[in-house]
Design a protein around this nucleic acid. Structure first.
Length: 578
DNA sequence: GCCGTTTTCGGCCCGACTGTTTTCAGTCG
């Protein structure tokens, strides 16, 4: 009888063991073995309990005898005494202290053992009294840096959303691009891979004269702290939003133009992708690092990233796919997907107007969509029970439909579709009767209330809704708000299977606060044959333009044009919805 | 702790930067 402990939970515990072993002063490589094991488990495609039952755990690279035994204990009993003992040896505060930039396990260990510091508050007090600076291996600067790090943590600014980072990153990039001596320049890291949240902005430049560029970089307007300032690498914190007191880390690296393709690949990551790429190079008798691809004493010249992939016998892997989830094997077999592009999108669904909680009128929304070059706009105002969002009663729905008809009569080559974002009630029923639902061109069903249900209840509720014959698509499937609110408890696998069975689409909510379902589940949805639809969930004219963030998610989820409903032309959508 | 065209021991990615020291350890990516 297996206790349910999923891959994510097991990986998190292995990762924590790695950190605790570091604090204990264990051999670095032993610690790393636990981290590697965590990564191997989290990237496992198969069901963990099943792998264990079949005795195949040990055949996963990175899982040896010890980890096999510990993971089995964890999954079959739900506990691991080894982990519990380890946790009991260190206060939780030490793990929090590790989040401070510049504090690693060695320093935290020293603070704990020599000054008995076991919490952020105790650490702040010790810094303020000068005790930390007096410690061997520490000093005034370290102490000041810790205080700055504590303030930084209080802002909750260790990660930001992509929409918060991207504009400022582009602004900095533009500023640097204009400087004398800059040859090539690019955003790297998780921003280039289009992750939904990022820890820092990474910028790479090539130049033969890096020093003046570095000088300028650390003095950019908006710089609140220079964390590091070297010849080829510098790091700053910039103020992204005065009002929100939002600080973002920004790293700049400068290499020669010959090194640029290698550095671009290296600093784009992900780390796991890079490790796999280096292994691929090694396999071919080559050595890959951030500066070169070398073998037999000489460098293999590559003019760009594509040439680098080619030199390793691989098709070009778009940055969004570089998460080590099979992209290298696919590139080797010439089986990478032809990813959906922003220009493939011809229209969007799920947009709100001032009929419910949107800011703009129907006409303004339609005009804004046309300006973006879209050919259709799906309206999806809230339904009657959501009174806080001015949800529409069946009577108001009728009136709105009359207004849409009148508007459509005036539009040429563009159409407004009559939709609703219909609430999924607590028991899985919909917020409108079938007769009312019948009057819409399409129905988005979403959860907005009773979000604290058990996983079983929430799953049954959503499965019931996506199984309803009138439901066209499921809106923001997990309800998460990035960095603010976790997803509600739901078995998404069951939801996706029900969606596949009933031919219901799943929304990729392109609003950068949601980006839900996320890319991992896109991939799974595609495998199950579920069609996805990229919707901005716009509450204003400007927010219609957010849909490219949803395209990023789709690309990270290996989706092609044919997998996304709103890549269809107006005529095709009219036929599909009829 | 894991792994093996280096196979039961001895490596495991490694370069940049900072701060504290005085030649290097710790942190980061």
């Amino acid at each position: 009888m297996f206790i349910t402990m999923n891959k994510g939970q097991v990986a998190a515990i292995l990762d924590e063991i790695a950190v605790l072993l570091e604090l204990k002063g264990e051999n670095t490589f032993k610690c790393r073995a636990y981290s590697n094991g965590a990564r191997a488990i989290s990237q496992l495609d198969a069901d963990l309990a099943q792998v264990i039952a079949e005795g195949k755990l040990g055949s996963i690279p990175g899982i040896g005898e010890t980890l096999q035994e510990k993971i089995t204990t964890l999954v079959t009993t739900g506990k691991l005494p080894f982990y519990d003992d380890l946790r009991a040896q260190f206060p939780d505060g030490l793990l929090q202290m590790l989040r401070i930039p510049g504090l690693g396990s060695k320093k935290v260990k020293a603070l704990y053992e020599q000054l008995k510091i076991d919490s952020l508050d105790a650490l702040r007090a010790a810094c303020n009294s000068g005790q930390v600076a007096a410690l061997k291996g520490f000093g005034e600067k370290t102490q000041a840096k810790i205080l700055e790090g504590l303030a930084f943590l209080e802002l909750g600014a260790d990660r930001v959303r992509i929409d918060q980072a991207l504009p400022i990153a582009q602004e900095i990039l533009e500023e640097l691009r204009g400087l004398k001596g800059v040859i090539r320049s690019e955003l790297c890291g998780s921003l280039r891979r289009r992750k939904e949240t990022i820890a820092d902005i990474d910028i790479l430049l090539s130049s033969n004269d890096p020093l003046p560029i570095m000088e300028r970089f650390v003095k950019l307007p908006g710089v609140v702290q220079v964390v590091a300032h070297g010849d080829t690498k510098s790091s700053i914190k910039v103020n992204a939003s005065e009002a929100a007191r939002l600080l973002i880390n920004c790293d700049l690296r400068i290499v020669t133009d010959k090194q640029f393709p290698f550095a671009l690949h290296y600093f784009t990551g992900s780390k796991d992708h890079n490790i796999a790429m280096r292994a691929r190079a090694q396999h071919m008798g080559l050595k890959l690092n951030e500066y070169e691809l070398a073998g037999a004493g000489k460098s293999v010249a590559c003019k760009d990233e594509a040439a680098l992939f080619k030199a390793l016998g691989l098709d070009y892997v778009p940055p969004e796919l570089r998460e080590h989830t099979g992209e290298i094997d696919a590139a080797l077999a010439h089986q990478l997907p032809s990813l959906v592009k922003t220009e493939d999108i011809h229209g969007v669904f799920h947009c709100h107007t001032d009929w419910s909680d949107g800011k703009a009128t129907l006409k303004e929304m339609a005009g804004a969509a046309q300006k973006l070059g879209l050919k259709y706009l799906g309206i999806g105002d809230h339904s009657q029970s959501l009174t806080v969002a001015n949800g529409l009663t069946p009577e108001r729905v009728q009136k709105q439909h009359a207004e849409i008809d009148a508007l459509n009569a005036k539009l040429k080559g563009f159409r407004v579709f009559k939709g609703t974002e219909c609430d999924i009630l607590a028991d899985g029923r919909l917020d409108f009767s079938d007769e009312v639902l019948e009057t819409f061109d399409y129905v988005v069903a979403s959860v907005h209330t009773n979000m604290n249900q058990s996983e079983a209840d929430m799953t049954a509720r959503i499965v019931k809704a996506v199984s309803h014959p009138k439901v066209t698509m499921l809106g923001h499937a997990t309800g998460r708000l990035l960095l603010r609110r976790d997803a509600y408890h739901v078995n998404l696998e069951a939801v996706l299977k029900a969606a596949a069975e009933h031919d219901t689409m799943i929304e990729i909510n392109a609003h950068p606060q949601r980006l839900d379902i996320d890319w991992v589940h896109c991939k799974r949805a595609k495998a199950l044959g579920v069609k996805l639809v990229i919707n901005p969930d716009a509450h204003s004219t400007a927010e219609i333009g957010l849909y490219p963030y949803g395209v990023d998610v789709a690309r990270r989820g290996w989706l092609e044009k044919k997998d996304v409903f709103n890549t269809m032309t107006l005529a095709e959508v009219e036929t599909a919805l009829a």
